[in-house]
Design a protein around this nucleic acid. Structure first.
Lengths: 203, 203
DNA sequence: TTAAGGATTGAACTCCAGTTCATTCTTTCT
DNA sequence: AGAAAGAATGAACTGGAGTTCAATCCTTAA
């Protein structure tokens, strides 16, 4: 034998892998999955096309990892907000606002993560990306029910609806930027609708 | 000159065009846009591949028309429900239920119309497909506000949210069928959430 | 220093859905 | 009937995205 993988070598490999992931992330944030070709990623990462395939078995696999990383980070942020002090109602407000504002701040990425549909595998990733948001919202709603702040309800369905409401409200702004005050209005009203969705019925 | 288009001839051309549209509709309802190739459509319509292109300039154009037709019909049904007798609250209930049940009855088609994303042009069609639903819901909400049944609100945003809520709730069931009672539960709860979204805030 | 093992390269290849077009078939009008 | 114009045909083409692989470069261990 005349070659063995040393820590130093491993470091370079890992670094290259990181470069590729970072570049892919950046390009997705600029052009979405569909608008990003592997040769572009390679160029942006400073490696060759073929090299990408020594690190990832396919485009789908690479982007799947990109999505999962971005998702994990976003969801951490979201969970932190959900865990801050305040009544369930106050926290839900914060959560919806955070979700909306972060999405609008990184439009294209949010669009890629939330709605861009490309193939079944990536679609599955997107579903998986939405699910944690839903679950966190569900928890807060259930706390609100216990605290008599929200009416007794199927928190699972309500949380689904809230995720759907947020996404639907944001789809258009995410595709093409609106006027700032228009977006402001949207976010405020979105919060109101979400609160009502979870809130008690008045008869 | 030795040829002019006679009514008889025009009839055949129109018939072929119809055949193609019908076949395309059927195939979309079975496999979605992405799962339907032009040669398949041609075969199903009993014409040649090339013939499809004498009737439609591109696959996108053909399916755009398929979508628009399906949309027009669905929206007519929806509008009828919106125009039936009853309080805004009752009507909104009927509307959500109709939307949900019709979507579940024609899963794949609903999926193609509502969420399958393929290219920008078709995406735009899908947006256009959702918009009338939203507008109809908006009208009913505004009536409800006038009737003091719903709290004063931005009905545009609420209607967006309701559309989003419905779609989000249905996405999973549309992809893979759930148990019947599970779907029943979903629809019932969905209606409740939508009513609350539009309903008055209790404080 | 040198040979072997592994990583990297990027031009070329594959694959395939959408589209084309030379040919054939139909219809119309003289 | 015959010629002209249009419609239909479907095998072949095309373009572009994802992927491959023979050649090359680098690293390690003797």
């Amino acid at each position: 034998m005349a070659y063995r993988r040393t820590p130093k070598m491993q470091g370079r490999i890992d670094a290259a892998r990181e470069q590729i992931l970072t570049a892919a992330h950046r390009l997705v944030a600029e052009a979405g999955y569909g608008g990003t070709a592997i040769p572009d990623v390679a160029k942006a990462a400073g490696v060759s096309t073929g090299s990408v395939y020594t690190h990832f078995p396919s485009k789908t696999a690479l982007f799947s990892e990109v999505y999962q990383r971005a998702a994990r980070h976003e969801i951490e942020v979201f969970r932190e907000v959900a865990d801050t002090k305040g009544t369930p109602r106050e926290r839900l407000t914060q959560m919806v606002e955070t979700f909306a504002r972060r999405a609008l701040a990184g439009r294209k990425l949010a669009w890629a993560l939330l709605v861009e549909s490309v193939n079944e595998e990536i679609d599955a990733d997107r579903m998986r990306f939405r699910e944690p948001y839903r679950a966190i919202i569900e928890d807060v709603i259930n706390e609100g029910i216990k605290a008599d702040e929200f009416v007794v309800q199927d928190a699972k369905v309500t949380s689904m609806c809230i995720v759907g409401a947020i996404v639907e409200t944001l789809v258009r702004p995410l595709s093409r930027a609106q006027q700032a005050d228009e977006e402001e209005r949207l976010v405020c009203n979105l919060i109101q609708v979400c609160l009502r969705s979870a809130g008690p019925i008045m008869r």
